[in-house]
Structure formats: C-alpha cells, structure tokens
Amino acid sequence: MGQIQLNQVSKSFGSVEVIPPLDLTIEDGEFVVFVGPSGCGKSTLLRLIAGLEDVTDGHVMIDGDDATDIVPAKRGLAMVFQSYALYPHMSVRKNIAFPLRMAGLDKSEQDRRVTEAARVLNLTDYLERRPGQLSGGQRQRVAIGRAIVREPEAFLFDEPLSNLDAALRVGMRLEISELHKRLATTMIYVTHDQVEAMTMADKIVVLQAGVIEQVGSPLELYQRPRNTFVAGFIGSPKMNLIGGSEAAKHDAATIGIRPEHIEISEGPGAWEGTVGVSEHLGSDTFFHVQTAASSEPITVRAQGELGLRYGQKVYLSPSMEHLHRFDSKGLRIE
C-alpha cells in the first residue's frame, strides 16, 4: 500500500513561506508528477514527503498513519536523487545493497534482492564497478536499483533525468514508466519538463509559487486547463493566449486556442495575417503568423507541408469548440 495524503502542509524557510497550506491525496499505485517552473516548490514538496525537510505546519499521512514526525528511513519511501547521490567509494553491488545492510537483512537475502534488481535493470555486468566508471544512464539505473531493493511503499524521483542527454532521457522515461507498470507501486516524480509529465503521469500536479494550480490527468489538463498558467504551461507548442478586443468578442478577458486547433489557408478566414517563421518537422509544420487579432504572433500547427512562404498573406480559422475562455483573474470560464 502506498497512499500518501498531505493535510494543510506548509513550509517556510525563516519568514519566507515557500509552500502555503496545501492539501493533496496520492492514491496507491498512482504515478503522480509534480511539474512547474524552477523555484515553484515542487522539489521542496517532495522533500517534505520524504521527510528530508520538516513541515512547518500540517500533516503528512502515509497509508492513513501520521508520518509527520517519522524519520525519513522509517517512512517506507525510497528516493532517486537528481545527482543520483551514489556512494562513490562503494561498488555498484554495495551501493544497491546499502539500504538492505542498514535494515539489517541477512547476507543471502541481500544478495538475492541485489541480483534480482540488477537483472531487472541490466546492471548484472557492472556490479563490481564503482559509480565513477559508469555512464550517466547506468548511474541512474543504479540509483533506481538502490530504491527498488527496499520494496518501498512509494518511490520519490527528484528530477532524475535532468542530467542525461536528450536521447537517453527518452529511453529512461520509458524504462521508468515500464517499471511503474510492472511494480504497480506509487511513484511521485518531480520535473520541470511538461513533456515528461504528460508522457509518464497518471496524475499531474501543476505547481506555481508553492500553490497547486491544477491536479488532473494529462488529458484533463490539456483539454480543460483551469487557468491561464496551466493553459500556457501544458502542451507544446504553447497555447496561443489572446487578450483585448478579440477576447471581448467572446465575453472573456483572455481566450486561448491551441496551435493544432487553428486552420491556416490562403482562402478567407477569421483572422488575416502574414506568415513569419515556419518550423518544419516533416510530419508537422509550425507557422508563426502575425495578425491584427493579437500582438504576439499566433502559432499554428499544420499537418505535413503546405508550401507557404515567409511574408505570404494567409487566413486563420480557429475551431470554436476548442476555444478556451478565461476571466480577468485568469480563471477558466465554462
């Protein structure tokens, strides 16, 4: 079991409140991603759950029991750190076995679990090496191995992929997702990368300045962002947010429309504009179109190639059923 509940948890460093009182429930077996820009408090929140930081106020409940005053090691949680935090003086085998050794498991059980974890993570050939002799991806796997062997109630990941190069990151992303499917253990994952959040999460928690902006499944967040912050943060390329008179036509302070929900054509349409820079991805093309409707260029996503040139006059037609409307406080209008 690995249900985690935060009740009115808050954290201040001195007089600076980094996390105002906050409630959150993470169900057993869920893959939850905390996402937000850097400095939004997502890592702090994770460390509060881990017990590495003391909460200023409120309670951390694990499986219904108050864990607020329990030391990190006794919470039944395992953590994978951003720097991996491997013990440089120990072999891979000893690194992975360390939590078991601390728990006082007998030697044969330690060996059994380490061997099993190494098999799962493709580390069998590297068990006698030191962390310094491993590649970034292998170190990452050792750190995960150290977490797995404890058979924890929940895994905590603190931006685990941020030190890997792009190609490796995609691979590790899949491996972690697969691990979650296989173990079906609760995982809490912190990242600033919304793509990681969208691809891995069962549930995404979007944070800004210590405040939860929205909690929901990736699709919920994508389809029904609760406010302009979430609307702009989730999705790539970003949602077009348009204010002023164009928004007023729809009884809103701001309207939002995703690049894939705008049609671009040489024929007539709602907004007239000129093509700026186009980004060709092969499968798709992103056009940045300057219009009178918005001061910012509007991003349009079109399938395939359209053969539009820089400076050409075009018309944009947003699809009305995909229009998001926000009030003057940035909140969604249904």
Binding site: A50, L52, V71, A78, M79, Y87, F98, M102
Partner: peptide, 13 residues
C-alpha cells in the same frame, strides 16, 4: 554532496 547524506538517511542509516 548533501544529497549523498540525504540518500544515506533515506536508506535508513
């Protein structure tokens, strides 16, 4: 690094 000490604490040392 501080994270190593934290890892050790998480590992139950």
């Amino acid at each position: 690094p501080g994270e190593i000490l934290e890892a050790a604490r998480m590992d139950g040392a």
